[in-house]
């Protein structure tokens, strides 16, 4: 019943979809990680000015579907002179959307480093900059790896939505194969497996990174409050 020859015959479409999903996700996630860092840093550096705008941005990301954001960029963009190709709209959409979540993750990491650790450093005359780079960041780094991994996985799964704005990603090409061959299970399951592979790779990578950071400290500090819930 499961006809694997279909997959072999359509391998080019599948590989093309895989490549598009991978590079768009990669750039989108990179944008999300860095923009999130900028937002969190602004908020940390000058809470009085940036707390409120950044909090609003985070609420927007949490409250609006990614699909709407993609449609705004791809279909709405041209009316304000912003014409993006579908793939670029995908990268920008994933980046803007993920940035809100990452800003929160970074902030949570900063907040969970006990204040006393910083006071102890300040009392020894260690400068605020060194307190940040030597005490705060190393400690928060390992706290934010698990929720960040989680968020990257969510973004990869949500990236399937770019097929709706006509990017030839895994999901779109799988649907094309379904329409060509009238076989449903094979293409969709094959593509599901590929998504799962990407996700597994990210999870493994996150786990390895966490362990590497943990080598500097045998057991993790329990993060305050659970990680945000994963979905996609």
């Amino acid at each position: 019943m499961f006809d694997i020859t279909i997959l072999w015959e359509t391998r080019e479409l599948i590989l093309q979809g895989l490549w598009n999903t991978v590079w768009i996700c990669f750039l989108g996630c990179l944008l999300a990680l860095s923009l999130g860092l900028v937002l969190a840093a602004l908020r940390l550096a000058n809470p009085r000015i940036f707390s409120y705008p950044v909090a609003c941005y985070v609420e927007l990301c949490r409250g609006i579907p990614l699909l709407i954001l993609l449609f705004l960029l791809y279909y709405g963009g041209p009316s304000i002179g912003l014409t993006l190709s579908a793939s670029v709209a995908g990268v920008v959409g994933i980046g803007l959307y993920g940035a809100g979540y990452f800003a929160e993750i970074y902030r949570g990491g900063f907040k969970s480093v006990p204040k006393g650790h910083l006071e102890a450093a300040r009392m020894l005359g260690i400068s605020p900059w060194h307190v940040l780079t030597r005490i705060q960041i190393p400690q928060m780094a390992r706290l934010i790896v698990p929720p960040s991994t989680n968020q990257l996985i969510i973004l990869v799964k949500e990236s399937a939505l770019i097929s709706i704005i006509s990017v030839d990603d895994l999901t779109k090409n799988a649907t094309s194969i379904v329409n060509q061959t009238f076989q449903v299970i094979e293409p969709y399951l094959a593509v599901a497996l590929l998504y799962w592979l990407i996700i597994e790779l990210i999870a493994r990578g996150g786990y390895a990174l966490e362990k590497r950071l943990a080598n500097r400290q045998p057991r993790p500090i329990e993060p305050r409050g659970g990680t945000r819930h994963a979905h996609g």
Binding site: K157, A160, V184, I185, Y188, A192, Y195, H231, G232
Partner: peptide, 21 residues
Amino acid sequence: SFWRGTPILLQLLLVYYLLPE
């Protein structure tokens, strides 16, 4: 694992096309 590990859009398409099958 399956329902948490794959895109929900893919799940939707699979269910939608599979039911008539």
